[in-house]
Design a protein around this nucleic acid. Structure first.
Lengths: 245, 245
DNA sequence: TAGATTTGCTTAGAGTCATTAAGGAAACAT
DNA sequence: ATGTTTCCTTAATGACTCTAAGCAAATCTA
């Protein structure tokens, strides 16, 4: 029922790996990022420090694994929020994903900061787990916007209105990432994305505490401004999903 | 010529303090934030570690002092960019300050991240040097916008269009910070601020590397969108300042 | 100007980290 | 039953923060 092709050893190993990442997360939440040390994690699970080196090549790899976990979790949260609405309803699906992102950030501030406002500049090499998970994450929104565009194109600036340098950079990105969207549409999408995520970023970095105590209405305001740019209707209270898949 | 009421000792002490902060900054730039340790800073100036405890109560206070330095420097940069234009020209003055902020961030990425994307969650207590410098920093923009508003009010949403919760929060902020601007105007200002700084924030956290290699035109695009919200004309190439003070 | 005090530094040391090395014991494979 | 792999331990190195104890020079005081 459990063992298929994987040996018992392998299963135990995976369990331990998961336990390690869980302990690291607990430390992150309870005592902050600087508390996530090899020693502390090991102690947390009744092991001695060097034992962890059988599971991770070092501190950095542990950090990378935990980060990848968070990305996966966030992607999953976004996808299920999105999939609460049927495939064709791109507006509600996008809005739901946006709101879910903020909800996750609010519920998991330490994790959000760990991932996005990473003190850890390392692990930025292309090909790292982090980089891969990061692009998967963008993909959730980009895919939906692509479908939206294909089913009902939103208004875009005229080609000559777009700064040539921006055009060039986006063309390069589209080519390398295989995005099936015209440059102008990517520009509109990214403008919206930057506004929304920039706001969330500032909120999570506590840069707005001085002015606001609750940014939820500000976030909604941002959604309201963004919606028409993608040709969508802003809906304040998301109506119950119309019985999706 | 130099010694006034301060003793020679005090002067030497201040010099040493400055040298310590400079060494810390050098380490930050050359080897990243994790290299800014008490020991490394001391070594950098030919001292032994514990000596620094005569100047700072510990690592955290050193970090705080360096942060405050950066804030002061940034404020100074903003002010002189602004003051390159005469007092009445609020548009050019604001734009200049915005561009100067990005220029400083680009020229001093480590410092910018140190200040704004601080891994260091500590030192957030109200009254800390950091908090004070932070509010001075906002003040540069807020003051200018206030003068702009008083000389030539920009369009604001009708009172009933503004979310009641936002209104309430901004009213509280205005009262506590002594802002002489109606709530609606604060809202417009903050919307602009959040867009601009959110973009810069994401840029500096490398969240946009995937899409763009050079964000300067994107930043300009943002300025172009923001300008009319404050009733200003967007000017791409800032004309030489008309011989300000 | 001599003596007391303050200040700036030193080294020593305790406790934390990351990481490597060496070895024991249990699980597994044959 | 034997050999191998795997998991974990302790020991040790060198970094870090920070406290303690103490020397020596600068400064103040009488």
């Amino acid at each position: 029922m459990a063992a298929q092709g994987v040996s018992r050893r392998e299963r135990v190993r995976q369990t331990t790996l998961a336990e390690i990442r869980a302990a690291a997360r607990r430390l992150l939440i309870e005592q902050g990022p600087q508390a996530v040390t090899i020693n502390a994690v090991a102690r947390e699970m009744g092991m001695s420090g060097p034992a962890l080196y059988h599971y991770f090549s070092g501190h950095e790899e542990l950090v990378g694994a935990v980060t990848a976990d968070f990305f996966r979790e966030l992607i999953q949260v976004l996808e299920s929020a999105r999939d609460a609405y049927p495939r064709g309803e791109h507006g509600p699906r996008l809005m739901a994903a946006c709101r879910a992102m903020r909800r996750w950030a609010i519920a998991n501030p330490a994790e959000y900061r760990w991932v996005f406002a990473s003190p850890i500049t390392a692990d930025r090499q292309p090909g790292s787990a982090r980089e891969l998970a990061g692009s998967d994450f963008e993909q959730v929104f980009l895919e939906e916007v692509t479908e939206l565009w294909e089913s009902r194109p939103f208004p875009v600036p005229a080609p000559e209105e777009l700064d040539p340098s921006i055009r060039e950079q986006l063309a390069a990105y589209a080519a390398s990432a295989g995005v099936g969207l015209p440059v102008e549409a990517i520009h509109v999408f990214l403008s919206c994305w930057i506004r929304l995520d920039g706001l969330l970023c500032m909120e999570m970095l506590n840069q707005l505490d001085f002015f606001y105590s609750d940014l939820e209405p500000v976030f909604e305001d941002c959604l309201r401004e963004i919606a028409p740019k993608l040709g969508l209707d802003y809906v304040a209270t998301p109506a119950g999903p119309s019985e999706g898949t």
